[in-house]
């Protein structure tokens, strides 16, 4: 009971500070509030684990995770290269290129669009990760099969978004560029693709997380003796929870960085869009 008092005190203190800071509502305080909240969660986590002697098998303390992270940087780097760079990134690039190319190819046929759009929407809602065991059988245990899973997973969200984006120009704009006697490819390159970019980037951003999930989950079905999914499942078997959490930290950092880079490219390419102008 006594152990709960300082924990409660930290919680109330951090919350009171945030409630006070939130009233100013400037850019700096917004960042500060979010940071304080995150830090207080970490501190509370550490305090709870220590005060109640939670076994590290159930929940390791943040300090233990950090120690494991520092001790295993080499392993973590090898896993990062195997899963994120080789599996997820290459698959994401291939899948995105294929989806955008397909969308442009069927753009000229309204018949195909009407047929493919409902199916694409349906497939985007399906548990596609389930295809992982099949692709692992076809492409072997190494990163090629992971990249294949990622290609299938990211294809449909990007396809659906690109088709919607290519339809986003209105008749007035298309007429204008037609009066300048622009051909199909000119109007595609100069008008419709730029207008579709916000939609395409929406699909690209959604699929960054899907790519990581696909690459990691595919490793549960078979992988060489490296990779994040492999490490997580073997470390769970050895009850080495701090290492598992260190892998999760890597996954979180990689996921955020991946998303952040795509968002940054989006901001550079679609600077004219209302949502980018602040």
């Amino acid at each position: 009971m006594m152990a709960a008092l300082p924990i409660l005190a930290v919680w109330l203190g951090a919350w009171g500070l945030n409630a006070w800071l939130a009233r100013f509502d400037t850019r700096a305080t917004r960042v500060l509030v979010a940071l304080i909240f995150g830090a207080s969660i970490l501190i509370l986590w550490e305090m709870i684990v220590r005060a109640y002697n939670v076994p590290s098998v159930i929940l390791p303390a943040p300090s233990q995770i950090a120690a494991s992270f520092a001790a295993n940087t080499r392993t973590l780097w090898i896993d990062f290269v195997q899963t994120i760079l080789k599996g997820a990134l290459s698959g994401w690039l291939i899948g995105a290129a294929a989806a955008i190319a397909t969308a442009i190819a069927i753009d000229r046929s309204p018949f195909l669009q009407r047929g493919l759009l409902p199916i694409g929407n349906f497939v985007a809602a399906l548990p596609i990760v389930g295809i992982a065991p099949i692709l692992v059988m076809w492409f072997g245990f190494d990163w090629q099969s992971k990249a294949a899973v990622v290609v299938v997973m990211v294809f449909f969200p990007i396809l659906v978004n690109t088709i919607a984006g290519l339809a986003a120009t209105d008749a007035l704009q298309r007429d204008l560029i037609a009066t300048w006697s622009a051909g199909y490819w000119q109007s595609l390159w100069k008008l419709r693709l730029p207008a579709a970019l916000p939609f395409i980037f929406n699909g690209l951003k959604i699929s960054t997380t899907l790519a990581l999930i696909g690459a990691i989950v595919a490793e549960f079905f078979g992988s060489p003796t490296r990779g994040m999914g492999f490490r997580i499942s073997t470390a769970v078997g050895q009850l080495d929870m701090p290492l598992v959490w260190a892998e999760i930290v890597v996954a979180a950092l990689a996921g955020s960085a991946f998303y952040g880079i795509v968002a940054l490219i989006e901001a550079r390419l679609t600077f004219w869009h209302p949502s980018q102008r602040t």
């Binding site: 997380t209 999930i213 598992v244 999760i248 955020s256």
Partner: peptide
């Protein structure tokens, strides 16, 4: 942005 499914086994 965290691939949450990765912690499923854990």
């Amino acid at each position: 942005t965290v691939p949450i499914l990765a912690i499923a086994p854990m």
